[in-house]
């Protein structure tokens, strides 16, 4: 069978969303795709489609008007996926902490994996963050495709096989010591 595990990190496609930023970090992401700091040599393409992408790049402190679209995009992306917060405003709120229309940081809403600091973050820091995100993507791929048990083993007493209590309840896991 064709094995996807070692080649999934060789061509990650990114999705970029502006959740209320000042456009400084967006220009630096656009400069990463320009000929000087070329990230297309890692196999990265900037698509606008959430159903075809692996890495989610968010900029800006999350404002009240843009919360709904952010959660819709996050739930439409298929597993395994990595979320990256670019800029000081996205990590902790930045200069806009405690203003009335702003949530303080992205991890109040969706779980974040990599935090990239800076105001505005330079393209070298974004490339460093992307390399770390690819390592996390590889470890998530290995965890998803590990095999796990669904039923307990049946008991055998005097030649009579009993499968009555072999189903698991919701949220229960099997201890491997029990055989």
């Amino acid at each position: 069978m064709f094995d996807f595990k070692p080649i999934r990190k060789k061509s990650p496609w990114i999705l970029h969303y502006n959740a209320g930023s000042c456009n400084g970090c967006d220009i630096e992401i656009l400069a990463c795709l320009s000929p000087k700091y070329d990230i297309e040599r890692f196999g990265v393409i900037n698509t606008g489609n959430p159903k075809q992408s692996d890495v989610f790049l968010v900029t800006g402190p999350v404002t009240f008007r843009s919360r709904e679209r952010l959660i819709e995009l996050y739930t439409q992306m298929p597993e395994p996926k990595v979320v990256m917060a670019v800029g000081s405003c996205t990590c902790t709120g930045g200069v806009f902490r405690d203003m009335y229309n702003v949530e303080d940081g992205l991890d109040r809403y969706i779980p974040v994996d990599v935090y990239v600091p800076g105001c505005a973050s330079s393209p070298e820091l974004i490339i460093d963050g992307l390399v770390k995100a690819l390592e996390i993507l590889e470890s998530k791929t290995k965890e998803i495709e590990k095999p796990f048990k669904l039923f307990r083993n049946e008991t055998n007493k005097d030649g009579v096989v009993n499968r009555r209590n072999s189903a698991l309840k919701v949220g229960e896991e099997i201890d491997d010591e029990e055989n």
Partner: peptide, 15 residues
């Protein structure tokens, strides 16, 4: 328009 409103003018007079 108005997806990016952050409330800067009020914070300039209080904070």
């Amino acid at each position: 328009v108005g997806f990016v409103h952050r409330g800067i003018e009020k914070a300039c007079t209080t904070k």
